[in-house]
Simulated scan of single mutants.
Amino acid sequence: MYIHEKENWTNFFWDNDKLSPILASVRHLQGRLLGRMESLGFDFIERATLESLILDVVDTSRIEGEFLNTELVRSSIARKLGIENADFIKTPRNIEGIVDVVLDATQNFDKALSETRLLGWHNSLFQTGFSGYQQIDVAKYRSGGMKVVSGNFGREKVHFEAPSADRVPYEMEQFLNWLNNDTSIDLVLKSIIAHFWFVTIHPFDDGNGRIARAILDMWLAKSDNSKIRFYSLSNQIFKEHKHYNKIIEETQKGTSDITKYLEWFLGCFERALLASEQNLEIILDKAHFWDRHKSTNINERQRLVINYLYDNYSKEVGFLRTSTYAKLTKCSTDTALRDLQDLVAKEMLKAEDSGKKTNYVIISPKKIRIPKINNEKTSAANI
C-alpha cells in the first residue's frame, strides 16, 4: 500500500527532537556561506553563482541519466544572466529548457508557483512534445497511469505507482495551495517536504524528478532570501543518488511520519553545504583567474580546457600534456602544442619539464594546483 492510498496522506509529521540539531547546523552553514559570498564583491558573486547554477543544471539532468555538455550549459546560463563577455554559442533545446527552469526557480523565487508557471516549466523541458522517441502530454497533467520501474523488458521491478490520473488535478491544487500559503514550517523543511509531495503525485508523463528538484531549489532560495547561489544540492544528490532513490521509495511505501526522509535529506543538504565551503576556494580562484585574464585573447579550445581543469578540480597535484589537450579538443598534436605554448606565453599556464615530456600547469592566483587528467580515460564526450 502506497502512502497516497491512505486517508489524509499529506498530514505529514516528524520528530522535532531528531531533526532540530541537524536543521540548526544546516541553517548555521547557510548563513555563514551566504555571509562570506556577500563580502566578495559583485564580480566574484556573479562567477560563483554561475558555477553553482552549472552544477545544478548538469547534475539534475545526470540524476535522470541525461548527460549535458558543460560548456554549452555555461554559455546558456551566462547569456541568460547577462554576464559580461559571455560567448554566444547556439545551444540545443533540451539544454535551453532545463536552464530556463532552474533560472526561473532560483532567480524568481519570490514569485508564487502557480499551475500556469509549473506547466510552463514542463513545456520548457519537452518543447518537441517527445520524451526520447515517445510522444507525451506536454504542459498538461498526465492523462494515464504512472509507474516508476527499473530492469529489463519482461523483468521490470515496480518501485512506485502514482495516484490515478483523475486524482492529479485535485492533488496538485492541494499541493500548490499549501506550498504558496502555509507559513508555519521552516523553509528548509518545507522545500524538502515539497519535493517528496510532488514526486509522490507524479503529475506529468515525464520530467517529474527535474521539476521536483527545481521546486526544492526554489524554496531553498526562499530560505536564503537571495538570488546568490553558493551550493548545488543536485550535485550532492547525484553523488548519493542510490540513497536518494531508496529513501524516496521507502517513504512512499510508509506512513505520514516522514522523520527518516527529512533526516536523510537534511544530512544530504548539510553535506552539500560543506562541499560548497571547500569548493568555494576553487570557484574564487577560477574567478580571480578569469578576472586577471579578461582582456587576454584566447580561442575556444583553450578556454574549454582551462574550464575543464577547473571544473574537475580535486586535491591531487596535476598537469596537462599535449596529447591530453589534443584528445579533449579533438585537434592535432601540432595544434595542441601551439595552443599550449600560446597559453604559456600569455602567462595562463606554465611549462614544467619532467624528463621526456612537458607538463602544463595553470598559473593559479591562489597558488593551488589543478589536477591531472588521466590520458587513458579522458574522453571528449565528457566535456
Rank of each mutant, 00 (worst) to 15 (best):
A380C: 08
S39Q: 08
A287Q: 04
M218Q: 06
N208Q: 03
E161T: 14
N11W: 09
L33K: 09
I283C: 15
L119A: 11
F153H: 13
H122L: 09
L19Q: 07
H241C: 14
V168D: 10
E7G: 08
Y170P: 12
K356F: 02
W121A: 04
D291M: 14
E38D: 09
N85K: 15
N235R: 14
A351R: 03
I258E: 02
I185R: 01
G65R: 03
K239A: 12
K227F: 00
L125P: 12
I282H: 06
S76W: 02
T200E: 12
V317T: 12
G254E: 02
T10G: 05
E46I: 15
K222R: 15
E277G: 13
L340F: 01
N16R: 11
G97R: 01
W121Q: 05
W290Y: 11
W264G: 01
F196N: 03
K346S: 07
S223H: 03
R292W: 10
W290V: 05
M172W: 12
K372H: 10
M218E: 00
I63D: 08
Y325N: 00
D56P: 07
K80N: 13
R292E: 14
R338K: 13
L274Y: 14
I373L: 05
A287P: 04
K227L: 00
F153D: 10
F67R: 01
E347C: 06
K357F: 09
K242D: 12
R210C: 01
E38Q: 11
D110H: 13
N8M: 05
Y313Q: 08
K357I: 03
R27L: 01
V158T: 14
L72E: 02
G120P: 07
D186H: 00
F12M: 03
L119Y: 10
Q135V: 04
H202T: 13
